[in-house]
Design a protein around this nucleic acid. Structure first.
Length: 422
RNA sequence: CGGGGCGUGGUGUAACGGCUAACAUGCUUCACUUGGGAUGAAGUGACUCCGGGUUCGAAUCCCGGCGCCCCGACCA
């Protein structure tokens, strides 16, 4: 994409009303737009990042048999009353509204109820199980206090996966697969080295739940990390009995600030019981379905990547999620865009066309501005590679390649470039 | 929801109760310049968050609202 055509622009200064690094950088670089506290719009570059994260998650969840759906944001009061989760004294972050005829509705903050209801329509025999179903959905939570930029919003995109099993053993087996999928996902989005499966408070059906926590100062949680075993324990369950249970020694654990990027809950029959999700087994007996739920906040993951990897110059995207793998930067020759004999511009145009023809999408900074501004913008926007075309590189017959994460530069031919970016 | 801070051109800031609300940046035009946010010139752009009040006079003081940020509580 030609940067001169991109409707967003970068800003030199951070907005006054943001303190969080993720929001400051994402707004400065034109990835997101703040609508109100805890509510952000995703602009072209930001949407591309979000879609990349989404695709990685989709890959991994499909690989363990997840079936994708899209449930509704509007929820009926009657359904949530069946599980006693409609009342504001029980769930205090509902956004509620009414139809014109007075019927009360809510905006979903999670989807256990509606999906369990749907499954009960289709599950009746042991032959119908196990199943796992997931979606990417905008969740609405009326947080008392939105904070930390896009990391804790009132409206945010979440992947929520739910599993339906016949027995505890069957559930446990899926649980392990889901956990491994999460490990893969966080590795692929570039957070593997700072993300730990973490034991936390369980729900009503298990001793612990598991969270995936990413180490960053922007985090809200305190966790205790065991580097060797690559696991951690949330402060909320850091007790001698728990440690003994997990085979961990307190002195081997290091305290770190972290943000919860994913979680896994054993739900047991908490929802299947009241909503009547059951099956008839081989012996003709009626059994209640065992459930689990597995969430990942995509916008939070995006914010966490910025927090964890950015440097003082700006964002540093992992290749897997970057809106574009490379930022092609033209250092203009004399005459700018209007000079047909501007060799640098002609060559950059040609290279851009050649890359496009090879199926490689890059962000092409063809603007008529000075090099310093372009380099600063490229650093801020954070594409993994920066390719410079200038009179200098023209004379050398190669291009300059700079890696955003390391700052390493090298000269590279067109052929090598196509290979690198394919 | 408790506590604290803050609302001024698009953005970031300044302005003793007193001149036409200043500076920087952005944007437009011209000149010059082209490897790390250049330079000069000319333009553009603000009911100082909203509503009341005090005062000869309010961006500034007072009251009420709304919004934003931070700490805490909360966080399926």
């Amino acid at each position: 994409m030609r940067q001169s055509k991109l409707f967003t622009k970068t800003r030199k200064e951070a907005p006054k009303d943001e303190v969080a690094k993720n929001a400051q950088l994402l707004i400065r670089a034109g990835y997101v737009y703040k609508e109100m506290a805890g509510v952000y719009a995703f602009l072209p570059l930001g949407l591309r990042v979000m879609e990349n994260i989404e695709q990685i998650i989709r890959d991994e969840v499909n690989a363990i048999g997840g079936q994708e759906v899209s449930l509704t944001a509007l929820q009926s009061k009657a359904l949530w009353q069946k599980t006693n989760r409609w009342d504001d004294s029980v769930v205090d972050n509902w956004f509620k509204s009414k139809f014109q005829n007075g019927t009360e509705v809510g905006l979903a903050s999670t989807h256990e109820e509606p999906l369990t209801e749907i499954m009960s329509e289709y599950v009746s025999s042991y032959r119908d199980l196990p199943r796992s179903v997931y979606q990417f959905q905008t969740k609405f939570r009326n947080e008392a206090r939105a904070k930390s930029g896009i990391m804790r919003g009132r409206e945010f995109l979440m992947k929520d996966l739910y599993s339906f099993s016949r027995t505890q053993e069957e559930h446990d087996s899926f649980y392990q697969k889901a956990k491994q999928a999460y490990v893969n996902i966080f590795a692929r989005v570039g957070l593997g080295h700072v993300t730990y499966p973490t034991f936390a408070l369980g729900g009503s059906f298990s001793k612990y739940s598991e969270e995936f926590q990413t180490i960053t100062d922007a985090g809200e949680d305190m966790i205790y990390v065991h580097e060797g075993k690559k696991v951690a324990v949330n402060k909320e369950v850091l007790e001698p009995s728990v440690l003994a249970d997990l085979g961990l020694k307190r002195e081997e654990l290091v305290e770190k600030k972290a943000v919860e990027v994913g979680n896994i809950f054993n739900l047991g029959t908490k929802f299947s019981e009241p909503l009547n999700l059951a099956y008839i087994d081989e012996k003709g007996e009626k059994k209640t379905v065992i459930m689990g739920c597995y969430g990942i906040g995509l916008s939070r993951v995006m914010g966490t990547i910025v927090e964890a990897l950015a440097d003082d110059k700006g964002i540093v995207w992992p290749k897997s999620v970057a809106p574009f793998k490379a930022h092609l930067v033209l250092v203009d020759g004399r005459g700018g865009a209007t000079d047909p004999a501007n060799a640098s511009r002609n060559e950059a145009d040609r290279l851009y066309a050649a890359l496009s023809a090879a199926g490689i999408e890059v962000l092409y900074d063809d603007r008529e501005t000075r090099p310093g501004e372009k380099f600063a913008d490229a650093d801020l926007m954070g594409m993994p590679y920066r390719i410079v075309v200038s009179e200098k590189t023209l004379a050398a017959g190669t291009y300059e390649l700079k890696e955003r994460a390391t700052g390493a530069t090298s000269m590279i031919t067109e052929k090598e470039l196509i290979q690198l970016l394919s």
